[in-house]
Simulated assay, not measured.
Amino acid sequence: MFPAPRLFVIEVTGNRPDRPEYHAKVQVLNGRVVQDGISGGWQVTRIAAADTTPADLLRATRDADAIVIVGGEDITPSFYGALAGYEGETAHYAAADEGQIALVQRALADNTPLLGICRGLQIINVALGGSLVQHIEDGIHKNANAPIDEILSTHGVTLTAESGLARGLGNTEILVQSAHHQSVGVLGVGLVPAAVAPDGLVEALEHRAAPITGVQWHPEAPDAPADQLPRLLAALRSNIVAALPVRELVAA
């Protein structure tokens, strides 16, 4: 009997005493990823990247079979060659940014399956040399000025028919829940769009050769279609099998 695969869920921080309502919302979302992972047969470890060092984060996750980088605050602009002081700017956690970026880069090198959710998609793009649009406000991607429990917006996205994401979700037209004010600018090296919103913004991306996927929406949201997150986690598990020969060769 084989042991359950090891899934690491990497969040930004485990402590936001200055923003208790936001923190409570994030905990609900991140907790759903953990619970669906356990239900899907994973050994799940949850780590807050800001509460450790980048080096320790890499050490703690070195035996990961798969990784999920979840949502949270904006990425520090210096990591993608931009300046602070933009509209809608949130708190920044540079240590978390650095650690999560390093995780993506190692996942690419080791062929480790990785899923990025919301901020996690943006981390993937920045880690591979891409940029971000620092502020969008079009009424589609976030319920602006709404209470935190009403911040998620429901809208459709169109998935690229040949994408792994479309295969995993079983459709090319889906409804999603999102709450973001930033978006993909220039795509990182090796990344391709996997879904677009009605306004043309990139809502998901994939790596051309590695099992790395990012979705800008929140499949773990309470009102998201119930099968979205389990399907994405199942795709991660399928990619472990596909990646094994390459990873064993690298280890040898």
Rank of each mutant, 00 (worst) to 15 (best):
G188R: 04
N145M: 14
G72F: 00
I140M: 14
L229W: 00
I212R: 08
G116M: 13
G41T: 01
Y80H: 15
L232Q: 06
E173Q: 12
L29I: 03
V126P: 09
R19C: 12
A50I: 02
C118K: 12
A210E: 09
A66T: 11
V215G: 01
T52L: 05
A60T: 07
A166C: 04
S178P: 07
G190N: 10
A195P: 03
D56E: 14
P198H: 14
L83Q: 15
V176N: 12
A235D: 08
S78H: 13
G130D: 14
G88C: 14
V157Y: 01
D56Q: 14
L128N: 13
E87R: 13
D51I: 02
S131T: 15
N145F: 15
I75L: 05
L249D: 05
F2R: 11
L159Q: 09
A127G: 12
A146N: 15
I75C: 04
A194Q: 00
A107M: 11
L232R: 04
G156P: 05
L114W: 10
E73P: 03
I67P: 10
E203P: 07
P77H: 10
E248Q: 10
I151W: 13
E173I: 06
T61W: 03
G168H: 01
Q35E: 15
L121F: 05
G31K: 04
D63F: 02
L108T: 10
E137G: 12
E89R: 03
T213E: 06
L121V: 00
A235T: 06
E98D: 12
W42N: 03
Q27D: 08
L83G: 11
S78D: 13
I124Y: 11
A144P: 11
A60V: 02
E206L: 03
G37P: 00
D56I: 05
V176D: 13
L114E: 06
V186C: 06
E203A: 08
V12W: 03
S163M: 00
I174D: 05
P20T: 06
G129H: 14
A194V: 07
G185N: 09
A252N: 07
V246T: 09
D223M: 09
H155Y: 12
V186D: 14
N30W: 00
G170V: 02
P225N: 05
T45F: 02
T172W: 00
D223C: 09
I148A: 13
A49P: 07
E206C: 07
Y22D: 12
A49T: 00
I10F: 00
E98R: 15
G116Y: 02
T76W: 05
R237I: 02
V241A: 06
L169R: 07
